[in-house]
């Protein structure tokens, strides 16, 4: 439809909507008293639980650091702590993506700009997150075999033979999936931002 056709169609919609009376004072009153953004909490809680798990794991490694008896294992321990802290921070920053701005009565373009910036940041964080998670997975296998069965899996040549090619294949597929899934969204957000800044 062209813009003027849309206007005509909207006039018909207007007439039909005006005939509808859905909200009575009691319903409106209830709406003002309930925290509807509770739905948002359902999204935020798993992210927060993830963050807590990461912190708890970092603390566990810290407490058991004494069991790591070679320089390699100690390096793996430090790397794991750093990765867990980084993942927690990324997760917390991702949660901010879902936050409604404090002042929702600001001009639409201003909120859209904040929205586009958050969207771009969120997708970048997500990409970094998955990459770091893979590194953490490999690192965790090394550490867990030491912590739970007192074996240094890094001595096993098959571990390295498999972990690197598998990691490469994973990253190859992942980067293709990311470019397919996210590039369009990112491009749209970046275009919108450009338009808003012009």
């Amino acid at each position: 439809m062209e813009l003027d056709d849309l206007k005509n169609s909207w006039e018909a919609i207007n007439k039909q909507v005006d005939n509808q009376q859905n909200l009575n004072p009691q319903i409106i009153d209830k709406m003002t008293r309930n925290k509807y953004n509770a739905s948002l909490h359902k999204i935020i809680y798993p992210e927060l639980i993830g963050t807590l798990v990461c912190f708890a794991s970092a603390v566990y490694i810290g407490f058991n650091f004494g069991k790591l008896d070679t320089v390699f294992l100690q390096g793996a321990g430090i790397l794991a702590i750093l990765l867990l802290v980084a993942l927690s921070i990324i997760s917390l920053l991702s949660v901010r993506h879902f936050n409604m701005p404090a002042d929702v009565s600001k001009p639409y373009a201003e909120i859209l700009k904040a929205f586009a910036v958050q969207k771009i940041r969120f997708h970048k964080f997500q990409q970094i997150n998955v990459m770091l998670s893979y590194l953490l997975l490999v690192d965790t296998i090394v550490l867990m075999s030491k912590f739970f069965s007192d074996k240094d899996i890094s001595d096993n040549k098959y571990f390295w033979i498999f972990s690197f090619p598998l990691g490469y294949i994973f990253l190859l597929f992942f980067s293709k999936w990311v470019s397919k899934k996210y590039n369009n969204t990112l491009r749209q957000a970046e275009q919108l931002l450009k338009e808003l800044e012009s």
């Binding site: 739905s39 359902k42 879902f98 409604m100 701005p101 929702v104 009565s105 639409y108 859209l112 929205f115």
Partner: peptide, 21 residues
């Protein structure tokens, strides 16, 4: 302003298939 701004953010939540209580 408020209605349109809230709508943008609601879009993100709706995409995650979460319903309101």
């Amino acid at each position: 302003r408020v209605a349109m701004n809230v709508s943008i953010y609601h879009l993100k939540v709706a995409k995650r298939k979460v319903s309101t209580i």
